[in-house]
């Protein structure tokens, strides 16, 4: 493999809660045009790691690098400024607003030389972005409350992609979705990847992970427990790493990644 600088790299990242170190010396990388799944059982440290990347938590040890350069992510706003967008499980949409308003939430465009919103310009641009992602969204002036779970997820993901972000974190993106909607979200994730974004999917649904990920990073009890590839490794391998029934094997893999 040729050495590509990862878009996002975590080196020996540690976060302590009192005496308990939740993620301990965790390494993690994701490169532009790649989907990496971050998996692990409840309490494995996935959420804490995501919050550290999203700027909600400060890390206590190790470093975070973007394009090879170390950064400090002190707040969600700083994370956004670094091109990191997070789609949380609860989506954080305003049900009473329409699709366009949600896509532009907090970053509304104004008409030149006035205080008034550029409603038409935003709607036209939103339509272009949605069409580009080929998300199956109905007309953009519908309130979000009228949409299905999959459509809502698509809006949240599109919003993350709309702002020239480079790294998108998706927390359990299919947790509340039906089969067809899940497939739609898979398509969306692949389209983000094909546009050259670095995508991180947090999940403990093996079907999700094997459907979307190019690479799988397993955490167990706050530590790295192996790197896997859907084409090469089986679900059983990953499940074994998650549950710890084959720790030795995983340790060997970590010595010789890829």
């Amino acid at each position: 493999m040729h050495a590509v600088t990862p878009t996002l790299e975590l080196r020996d990242v540690t976060k302590r809660y009192g005496h308990v170190a939740a993620p301990t010396d965790v390494d993690f990388t994701v490169t532009a045009g790649e989907v990496v799944a971050l998996v692990g059982d409840n309490g494995a440290g996935k959420s804490t790691l995501v919050k550290a990347i999203a700027g909600s938590h400060r890390i206590d040890g190790g470093e975070i690098l973007i394009d090879g350069g170390p950064v400090v992510i002190g707040s969600p706003t700083e994370a956004s400024a670094l091109g990191i967008e997070t789609v949380y499980q609860d989506l954080a949409l305003c049900d009473n607003l329409d699709v366009t308003a949600n896509l532009y939430l907090g970053r509304e465009r104004r008409r030149s030389r006035s205080l008034l919103l550029d409603q038409e310009g935003m709607q036209a641009h939103a339509a272009a972005v949605i069409a580009d992602l080929a998300a199956h969204l109905p007309v953009l002036d519908k309130p979000v409350s009228a949409l299905s779970g999959g459509q809502r997820q698509a809006i949240a993901v599109s919003r993350a992609a709309l702002w020239g972000s480079r790294i998108v974190l998706l927390d359990e993106p299919t947790a509340a979705l039906g089969v067809a909607q899940t497939v739609m979200v898979y398509d969306l994730i692949h389209r983000l990847r094909d546009r050259g974004l670095a995508v991180v999917v947090i999940s403990h649904n093996m079907a999700d992970v094997f459907a979307v990920a190019d690479r799988i990073t397993v955490l167990r009890l706050g530590r790295n427990a192996g790197e896997f590839r859907p084409g090469r490794d089986s679900t059983d391998d990953v499940v074994a790493a998650i549950t710890g029934s084959r720790e030795l094997d995983a340790a060997v893999r970590k010595e010789n990644p890829r």
Binding site: P76, S80, Y88, L91, A92, L93, C94, L105, G106
Partner: peptide, 12 residues
């Protein structure tokens, strides 16, 4: 008024 937490996260 629609979703205070979402508004806060969006930087409003």
């Amino acid at each position: 008024g629609g979703n205070r937490e979402a508004a806060r996260r969006a930087g409003i």
